[in-house]
Simulated scan of single mutants.
Amino acid sequence: MSQQKATLRANGFTFKQFFVAHDRCAMKVGTDGVLLGAWAPVAGVKRVLDIGCGSGLIALMLAQRTGQSVKVDGVELDAEAASQAQENCAASPWAARLSIYQQDISQWASQCQWRYSLIVSNPPYFAAGSACASPERAAARYTDTLDHPTLLSCAESLIDEDGFFCVVLPADVGNRFVEMACERGWFLRYRTDIADNETRPPNRVMLALSPKSGEQFYDSMVIRGPDQLYSEAHCSLTRDFYLFR
């Protein structure tokens, strides 16, 4: 089956080296996941974990960015999303080192015997409020299924002492997340504030936390320039993934 036919049939997104079907996932391929997958620091990583992996997008991106000895695991609560992530990973060039597990992350963390040098998550961030179209979408969006203290606790039990825990969040939620994490003993090492364009304030932030203190790097990025074309910074970050970049 050609990549074009796969795109039409599976309702997904075609990247340069892989295809992500997401028709059975509550949360579709989106800007936040792509940015985090392209941004998370991978130098020297040995094993990677994507918490709440959804369609497997970020796990696939990190498999593309790392060497053949690096194992990439994804944990996803929703059975349909986990099944689709397994199919996406099996169809990718890195199937042999990608593993998707359908389980609650708290249970996974209590049983897991590995430690990870990189943990990533595009986590829920809305407090429970207005109804979603489906329970699956509510689980992906609202923190009542995975609140941030629980997420941090799981990452604490799974992270290697030299590892990084990376998330993407709305800017205001991200600020509170940093405060909470630092109170628990994490150190903020990397931060990138992201704005849609130069006339708007940052509306999302990518954070890299570590159990160990060290040099800190802060920067910012706009997604589109004054001409509404993608900025050079955005293109540089995502060039290895998006078609026609």
Rank of each mutant, 00 (worst) to 15 (best):
S153E: 06
L118D: 06
L169R: 06
R97E: 04
A139V: 02
N122R: 15
C53M: 08
E198G: 08
Y125M: 14
D73R: 00
Q86K: 09
A133H: 11
Y190H: 14
D78T: 07
S106C: 09
H148S: 15
S83L: 12
A79E: 11
S121V: 02
G56S: 05
Y142T: 13
L188Y: 05
A195K: 00
C132F: 03
S117Y: 15
E76K: 01
A131E: 14
Y190M: 09
Q68N: 09
A96E: 05
S69A: 08
W94A: 10
A181T: 02
A96G: 02
N175D: 12
P123R: 07
Q107K: 13
A63Q: 00
A91N: 15
M61N: 01
A109N: 08
K71I: 15
S130C: 13
F126M: 14
N197A: 09
Y190T: 10
Y101M: 02
G129Y: 10
G67E: 01
L188G: 04
W114V: 12
A95N: 09
C132N: 10
R184K: 13
A131G: 12
V173C: 13
C166H: 03
E198C: 10
R65I: 12
Q111L: 10
T199I: 07
C132A: 11
A95V: 07
Y116K: 07
H148T: 03
S121L: 11
Q86F: 11
E76N: 04
S110I: 06
V72Y: 01
A181C: 07
Y125R: 13
Y190S: 07
L60Y: 01
T143R: 04
V70L: 03
A131W: 07
A155R: 00
V70N: 01
S99C: 15
P135F: 06
G174E: 05
N122Y: 12
Q68G: 10
D172E: 13
I119M: 03
R97L: 05
A155D: 05
E87Q: 14
E136W: 02
C89P: 01
S153T: 03
C166K: 05
G129L: 11
E183R: 11
F187L: 02
L151I: 00
G67M: 00
S134Q: 12
C154W: 03
V168G: 09
G174S: 13
L152G: 03
T150D: 11
Q84A: 12
S110D: 12
A96W: 00
T143E: 03
